[in-house]
Design a protein around this nucleic acid. Structure first.
Length: 562
RNA sequence: GCGCUUGUAGCUCAGCUGGAUAGAGCAACGGACUACGAAUCCGUAGGUCGGGCGUUCGAAUCGCUCCAGGCGCACCA
């Protein structure tokens, strides 16, 4: 609805300008707000106040001019007021509201989807956990936010590619292989021979056991059969990576998160991309040798210090393949790339961008974009669960899904905006009570479904494609409030996509569920009045559809019974 | 010390990118099921939007500054 109101005001401004009653040029963008107070109308606009200074006229006077040129051919506007210092308040007609229900019916599962993205390509990289252990709760938040962001962007009309990048080489993986090898030999973390950076988790023992048993592992991008020789560190490395890759696959599958593309760091090396980046940076004159290392003069691009590219031992720092990887993304034609990461990695943002600038291949300065989520703390039994990755003790994503369920886990991760810290209260998430917002929302859906069952027994069904006149009885403030809220889903989806903030949808859902529960307690749906009963069943059908669609964008189910 | 981020009701958090009287949930108190699911609803109470200064018609929102929490600041990723 917001998108239908704005053009009306826009054309009024243009007409007023053409008639020389307004002189400001260029005209500022129209911002439509929805007032908190219903007396202030369905929508309000502050344009008159913004123009006041340039026009040298009182805002209320300007508002009058704009309203004079307001052409409402479709009968959208029932009333327009000038209020307060100069707000233009617009009241949408009842029939225009009622008509929106027909739109929801015709769009069905697509309702809430928009065309804002115009089918343009966007790539979202998220999770990107290294295969050195199971996914923990922090990865879970990244998975929930990243995946939902993809669903939101898809709903907003973008062509989304989901990508997972992982490091299957390098120091961390060597530590992994070594840890498994030691476990194969029966050496435990408390043994003096256990190395500093070794992975101590119990899962390493499982990997070792599987390796010695010569198991076969099938995972995304990884297929291998162990030779079982504890001396063969190369084979152990392959096997361990594949084994943990499979663990992560299973976790993600349980979380209903899928990826289109997996990129391996090792491939960037084997395809010569890493070397090519170094050569290009040298050729561009941005590199220098010092202390047996090769440095990038990143300070020339706004970094606070220069960065090592090639270490004294001849290997590259992680940041070089990162740049090579993003160059690859760029060359694949993604003019829009979003990286979802934990905020503990935020120092990479500058470095990757700086490296790409130094390549001088026409990549814009703010590319790629980043969504950084803050840390998660876990509460259980009223106490914080301490996490020690080093000792291998932490809450895994799998634990959470098993314990509180996929729907609740996703919803809890999505309730907060990414850049706020999140407290995950496991006891609360498990509760099947009114304190738990997931159940509150899902219950609204289930409750509506049960009304339909009840209505069917009494011989009532929601009409298909009713005439607008049949909906005219949906005219109480409660009916209209429901309808108005239903119309906000597409705007909310767009807002989520623009701001990278999926949490707006969780709040929308809570509000919609609340509106319905309240409506239900106050109004009879099934009554003697056949016309009203059918109209309300029709309204609830659209409400259930809207709840279901919004939940679906969050990757959460809409149960018909609970 | 530098960078990013957060600070709103007793607690957990919204506040739609500057608008009209700052909102929810939980906790507290008081109410509503012999008709559609009480996993629900209605009401009461609860605030110096961390402090200060500034920008303007107008600030929780923007700027500066101070205070406090979190995360970074490697020839780890």
């Amino acid at each position: 609805m917001r998108n239908r109101i704005a053009p009306l005001l826009e054309s009024a401004l243009i007409k007023a300008h053409a008639a020389q009653e307004l002189t400001t040029y260029p005209l500022p963008a129209i911002i439509i707000g929805h007032p908190d107070n219903p007396e202030h109308g369905d929508f309000s606009c502050n344009i008159a106040m913004q123009l006041a200074k340039g026009e040298r006229k009182a805002p209320r006077q300007i508002a009058e001019i704009i309203i004079k040129y307001l052409d409402d051919d479709n009968g959208l506007i029932a009333k327009s007021d000038i209020a307060g210092p100069g707000f233009i308040n617009l009241f949408v007609s009842r029939s225009a509201w009622q008509e929106t229900l027909l739109k929801i019916e015709s769009e069905r599962d697509r309702y809430g989807h928009t065309i804002s993205g115009a089918g343009k390509k966007v790539q979202v990289e998220f999770v990107s956990a290294n295969p050195t252990g199971p996914l923990h709760i922090g990865h879970g938040r990244g998975a929930a936010i990243g995946d939902t962001l993809c669903r939101v962007l898809d709903a907003a009309g973008w062509d989304v590619t989901r990508e997972f990048y992982y490091n299957d080489a390098g120091v961390q993986i060597s530590n992994l292989a070594l840890s498994v090898q030691l476990r194969c030999m029966g050496i435990e973390p408390d043994d003096p021979r256990w190395p500093e950076g070794g992975y101590q988790g119990e899962y390493i023992k499982d990997v070792a056991k599987a390796y010695l048993a010569r198991e076969t592992v099938e995972a995304t991008d990884q297929h291998t059969t162990a030779c079982g020789d504890p001396e063969n560190i190369e084979d152990i490395r392959h096997f361990a990576v594949a084994w943990l890759r499979r663990e992560q696959d299973l976790d993600l599958e349980a979380f209903d998160v899928k990826f289109d593309v997996y990129t391996l760091e090792s491939a960037l090396y084997s395809e010569g991309r890493v070397e090519a980046v170094v050569q290009k940076l040298i050729a561009n004159g941005h590199a220098y040798e010092q202390d047996n290392a090769l440095w990038l003069r990143s300070t020339a691009f706004g970094d606070d210090k220069d960065r090592v590219m090639r270490k004294a031992d001849g290997s590259y720092t992680y940041f070089v393949p990162d740049v090579a990887y993003h160059q690859d993304k760029w060359e694949r034609g993604f003019t829009r790339v979003i990286n979802e990461q934990g905020s503990d990695h935020h120092s990479t943002v500058t470095r990757v961008r700086v490296g790409l600038q130094a390549l001088d291949i026409g990549i814009p300065q703010g590319w790629p974009e980043y969504v950084l989520h803050q840390m998660v703390t876990v509460m259980r039994g009223g106490e914080e669960v301490k996490i020690s990755k080093r000792a291998g003790s932490y809450v895994t994503l799998r634990d959470l899904i098993d314990e509180v369920g996929r729907d609740a886990t996703r919803f809890f991760f999505l309730m907060r905006k990414p850049d706020a810290q999140l407290v995950f209260d496991i006891d609360l998430a498990k509760q099947q009570t009114n304190e738990n917002p997931v159940y509150y929302v899902q219950y609204a859906h289930a409750r509506i479904c049960s009304i339909f069952d009840n209505a069917a027994e009494k011989g009532f069904i929601a009409p298909e494609k009713p005439a607008l006149a049949d909906l005219a009885c949906l005219s109480t403030p409660d009916d209209l409030q429901m309808i108005k809220l239903l119309t906000e889903l597409p705007d909310t989806v767009d807002d989520c996509a623009v701001h990278f903030e999926p949490h707006r949808l969780t709040y929308y859902l809570s509000e919609l569920a609340s509106c319905f529960h309240s409506f239900y307690n106050k109004n009879r749906v099934i009554s003697e009045d056949k016309a009203l009963t059918e109209a309300r069943l029709y309204l609830l059908k659209r409400t259930a559809q809207t709840l279901k669609n919004a939940l679906s964008i969050l990757g959460i189910s809409a149960p018909e019974r609970m």
